[in-house]
Design a binder for these strands. Structure first.
Lengths: 336, 336
DNA sequence: AGAATTTACTGAACCGGGTAAGTTGTGGTG
DNA sequence: CACCACAACTTACCCGGTTCAGTAAATTCT
């Protein structure tokens, strides 16, 4: 089936292509009567402007890109990413921007994808997640002058805007809460050590523990359930085992809960558990997990809004998008 | 920064635009020496063909579309979709096709998005999930002659290929297994009743129960943890409460497990639980859940392959992509 | 009434690739 | 040597919108 073009509309309306273009885009240059006639014809024959032709004439691609550089199997279980994506979608679809997604294996490939997408004019901007120390993507984005927003930070991103939340404040709150309950041996199972926000959290965790005179034990992990289980086992077989563990994501926290129960420890009696980033998963398990809650979808929506503003040429500055707050549930209690 | 075009390459190589186009696309019409010179220049200045211009000249958009018509909050926790998406990506990125994603609220909007994407020549084909009875998307796809592959079925899709797995066989296996363990009162918490595969499963569940002389109780739900909990509670307060429950997804199964434990029932002693679609979630909880396992990512990859074949103009037929098989874990045992 | 301005258009160039058709230059053949 | 075949290009137009310069008619101003 041949897809109709503005030339078809022009022929049927007895006007020129240019007039049709003006009419359909709400530009001045056509009378109201003609505009309505043209719009009616467009409706009738089911016209949709060819985005390729439009993009070719200098207009935008009306799409933003997102690359994810994590093993696919993590994506399947990490509520974080789908939460973010939902948030992006909410904002993007409202302005009929599409989200173009690509899972890649390494940061180098990520850079490749950025270059290609931008060169091909497939996207108008990108959302960058999982900021690393000396992230190789930042200089490339600056060189390409590709509109971008970084989720996470604060870090070195030059003039690229960042959306971040106060991770240091959140973890401090969690530690204070556990200490108030009477815990003295608090451990932490962290996410990928290469990521900047992991480092921020680790630093803040060390700081608060130091200032309270506690020993700060952090076992680095990778957000997977398997690694979360392993780290938990390592912590719990220790003679001086912790009475509370803070996990950097919900998946590891749930895995840790299972390990504790397997080993015959009562949660929260023998071990308290705090998960970073709340998700339905945390309230589904038994006991439900105390978590550091933030509105991930809103976080994503915020990032999308900033990116769209940046694409529109507005100057965008770093924004803090709400601190995570503690949601106490059944997995935390004073130690026995 | 100005992005380079073939005209820039042509100027630097001292040839015409046409020659550059032939050279870069491996077409005959240029000498090997010239071709290499042109390719070298393209490399050097970081040339990427503008996808819009390419698409305008009749080439493909090198992108496929996926719309998801489910509440955003479900996407966040359903491992199924991210598993599928990982599978798509694996196949698509290998052929440098992009995946364009849009979350929509209703099937009507979904149809709108198909029309728009296809009209705008933004995509070359779509992957359709969550097939319904008399699905309104099917006639539209046929009318538009938009290449498509349906995940799920078998159902009425005319000449649009389907990728499906033998749900009836899988649920029969699960029921047989539970009966072999000694269960006589087996209930089921299903997914959205409007979806075709829910109906297939319900029919098969009724059939096998009938043939074994068991009463078939199915409570319809919507894949969310909340509804899963509610359905489980309804089943467990019954005087003739079931000794085993089969859930249509992992999220509801985990929620059900939590409800049982809350009510003081031992799993698997007082209640056995089977989840449909395995995921790391199932092995994370305690006890780990017996599940109907299938390789979701491979399922998605399969669908992507078929769609790409269909875009290439090949005739694609319905394919069965492996039956789910039972993975017994700690949540099933003979009833006490 | 005549000049100046505004309105409502038309026509053509343009975006950046793809490609059919035409133009060279070279070598081989009868 | 004339003729042909073929490689190696160039030229020119296409795709489907956007946009700018131009133009004729209608309206406003003086």
């Amino acid at each position: 089936m041949k897809r109709p073009t503005i030339a078809d509309i022009a022929r049927r309306a007895g006007v020129s292509k240019g007039a049709v273009s003006y009419a359909l885009n709400g530009q001045p240059g056509v009378s109201e009567a003609t505009r309505q006639r043209i719009v009616a014809i467009a409706q009738e024959i089911g016209f949709n402007p060819n985005s390729a032709a439009r993009a070719l004439s200098g207009a935008s691609a009306r799409a933003v890109g997102l690359t994810l550089c994590r093993p696919a199997r993590i994506l399947g279980i990490e509520p974080w990413f789908m939460g973010l994506i939902s948030g992006f979608e909410a904002e993007l679809s409202a302005r009929s921007y599409a989200l173009t997604l690509q899972v890649v294996a390494t940061p180098e490939l990520e850079v490749e994808v950025y270059r290609r997408w931008w060169g091909e004019r497939r996207i108008d901007g990108v959302i960058v997640t999982d900021l690393r120390e000396n992230d190789i993507r930042i200089p490339v984005l600056q060189q390409l002058q590709l509109p971008a927003v970084v989720i996470g930070g604060p870090g070195e991103t030059g003039d690229i805007a960042q959306i971040w939340s106060d991770d240091a404040g959140a973890i401090t709150e969690a530690v204070r809460y556990l200490v108030a309950l009477g815990h003295r041996r608090i451990a932490r199972v962290s996410g990928l050590p290469g990521l900047l926000h992991t480092q921020t959290r680790t630093r803040a965790f060390n700081d608060i523990c130091d200032s309270l005179g506690l020993e700060a034990v952090t076992i680095p992990s990778d957000y997977t359930g398997e690694e979360g289980s392993r780290a938990t086992r390592r912590l719990l077989i220790d003679t001086a085992r912790p009475t509370a563990i803070i996990y950097d994501n919900d998946v590891m926290a749930v895995a840790g809960l299972a390990v504790a129960q397997e080993m015959g420890l009562a949660v929260p009696g023998d071990l308290s558990i705090v998960a970073w980033d709340d998700s339905p998963l945390c309230s589904l398990v038994h006991p439900p997990l105390t978590a550091l809650t933030r509105d991930i979808a809103e976080y994503g929506a915020h990032a999308a809004r900033e990116l769209l503003a940046s694409i529109d040429g507005k100057q965008v500055t770093n924004v803090e998008a709400g601190t995570a707050h503690l949601t106490p549930r059944g997995s935390t209690a004073p130690p026995r």
